[in-house]
Design a protein around this nucleic acid. Structure first.
Lengths: 145, 145
DNA sequence: ACTGAAATCGCTGAATT
DNA sequence: AATTCAGCGATTTCAGT
């Protein structure tokens, strides 16, 4: 677990709110020099606390308006790495969570329309030793990020 | 739905891979001038395709090592906005997805340990007209981000 | 819509305390 | 571990095409 003081937490919060905020802006806000802020952010990257930076995208604006979670149940003999690997081969899969208990995995997918969702679910069913699925269609989502 | 050409998609892909990539780098890669690239990225922000930029964080390195999804079922009379609002009052909630059918909502939480998880689930149960919960503990996760 | 140039502003590393 | 400073590179705006 990384050593982080209050200033580091402030910088991290600022970068989560706006990943392109400049070192100068942040330096003014925390009351340090630009070089000191850069050093701290570099350190958070090196220690692995910050794993990267990314643009946040409104997928609906790109015509991928449908989001769903698919609960997957696998045959008892399926190893975890195979569960993940098989789900991941489906391009529309955004994230895979392996789960303790039932279901075995929760897969987040993003698709253009319901036909497309049907195809993706079929793809998931074909991609491993799957014994059952349950699809949770997302009506709305709110994220703290 | 926003009008995006192939160049826009390339720029968007680059910014999803590294949200702090410079305009100069991207300009070299797509074969346009820096000013043209800036104009396109500005346009994607204005049109809402890009909603922001953020730092990606390894929460386990900060001591928040446990992730879970909690399926929530509400009393039939509960309006959606109240479902979201009540779940959101719990600080450890990372995201709320309202769902068509059963369950009514899927809530992603991040906590320090199992005691903490217990408290968060109790908090969720208290925060609205909840008739049932089911917790899915995440063992591992892989994201395309 | 893109280019190129000019001015501004921010980043980076080295020397210093 | 923070500061200051100097050199360099990136951003931003604008006139021209």
């Amino acid at each position: 677990m990384a050593e982080m003081d209050e200033t580091d937490h402030s910088l991290l919060r600022m970068l989560r709110e706006d990943g392109r905020r400049t070192f100068s802006e942040m330096a003014a806000e925390v009351g340090l020099s630009v070089a000191a802020v850069k050093r701290r952010v570099d350190r958070m990257r090196e220690s692995g606390v910050i794993t990267g930076f990314t643009a946040q995208v409104d997928h609906a604006k790109l015509g991928w308006g449908i989001e769903a979670f698919v609960e997957l149940r696998y045959a008892g003999t399926t190893p975890v790495r195979e569960i993940v690997a098989s789900a991941y081969t489906v391009q529309e899969v955004q994230a895979v969570f392996t789960i303790a208990g039932d279901p075995d995995a929760l897969v987040q997918v993003r698709v253009r329309d319901l036909d497309h969702l049907q195809q993706v679910i079929d793809g998931l069913r074909r991609s491993g030793q799957i014994t059952g699925t349950k699809t949770l269609m997302v009506l709305g989502s709110w994220s703290r990020a």
